[in-house]
Design a protein around this nucleic acid. Structure first.
Lengths: 197, 197
DNA sequence: GTCTATATGGCGATAGAC
DNA sequence: GTCTATCGCCATATAGAC
């Protein structure tokens, strides 16, 4: 953190606080403390909390969907792509465990953010639909069920961690970590069965 | 709403506002307006916003898990129970589409709420684990993966609706409603394959 | 029990010195 | 560019009349 200039420090600090507290729960004071600067300086670089949030959120959104999309442009076969997608997606979430829930919440709070973000991030959902579509073209169900299923299966254990850990793991954090690691294999295995079914 | 006494009106109003805005996003003024009373009267019945929230949240939590748990005590076969559970669970969420996300968020905000709530609601997670455990006792994976999968598959399409609807359904609300209806059959079908695999 | 009016505190934002 | 001091608003909470 010490090597960054002030603007970068602010962005990084805001990122941490916003991800964990959300737009409404975050406090400018806490962001300033985290960045090791004064509250007034936040307003010098970003005129308002809204502007700061917008900068942070669009960055996070773009990064997150960017990493996930890469695999879709690889040379692998369709089956391998699906496995690879699951693998990459889980890893990305594990490295940013609070991000999916954060994105979902903020979009729920203000759905109008979505459109501009999709343009900005260059994320193309048709790509994902057509990828899975060619694999399951004779299924009796809408392909999007499969896509939503993968996303939910990967995201949910992270998004609902405190609840699930308490209910099913006696609040044992290490046991839950092990569960999450095992889940990656579990899901890839599930995907294979899905594809072959 | 007109037949209720003041305390019930407050509780019902608070329920609506809290579910849609969350603890941090909710405003006492909005709750008072929704209940058709004065802001000061909220404090007369519930001394603080925290107390009011606690009352509402514990009620919602208990109701939600109560409805879902009923099926586990039925006389059906294990396979039928799993199908019935999926069926009931989807219906419960569809009738309360914002509740799961609300619960998850508030637990994330304050994980310490979980323990007392589990006692209060009488919800017994061992019941669910043992139910599925007898069915999948020779699986190479922890049974809890299956439980978490069902929950995620059911909850996610509701929790992330604005995001998913925008990305995959061109923001067509009716198309998404149809998708949700179809999903019930899709998931039951998936469960059957799961069980037989 | 229900209201109006007001106190109290916190937070985003600005002014102005350096 | 960075700080201290302060403004102004808004939300929770209370006082007190009816």
């Amino acid at each position: 953190m010490e090597e960054l200039n002030t603007e970068q420090k602010i962005l990084e600090a805001a990122r941490q606080v916003f991800i964990h507290k959300g737009m409404e729960g975050a406090r400018m004071q806490e962001i300033a403390d985290e960045a090791g600067i004064n509250k007034a300086l936040l307003h010098y670089y970003y005129r308002s909390k809204d502007k700061l949030f917008e900068a942070v959120f669009s960055q996070i959104f773009t990064e997150f969907f960017g990493k996930v999309s890469i695999v879709l442009f690889s040379e692998a076969s369709i089956k391998d792509k699906i496995i690879l997608f699951t693998d990459t997606y889980i890893d990305t979430i594990a490295a940013n465990p609070f991000v999916p829930q954060f994105i979902i919440n903020e979009i729920n709070r203000d759905p109008s953010m979505m459109k501009k973000l999709m343009e900005k991030s260059g994320f193309n959902p048709k790509k994902l639909v057509s990828l899975f579509g060619t694999q399951f073209k004779d299924s009796k169900y809408d392909i999007r069920h499969f896509i939503v299923s993968i996303l939910g299966l990967c995201i949910f254990p992270f998004a609902a961690r405190p609840l699930l850990q308490t209910i099913y793991f006696d609040n044992d954090s290490e046991a839950y970590d092990a569960f999450l690691i095992e889940r990656k294999e579990y899901l890839k295995n599930m995907m294979i069965k899905f594809i072959e079914a």
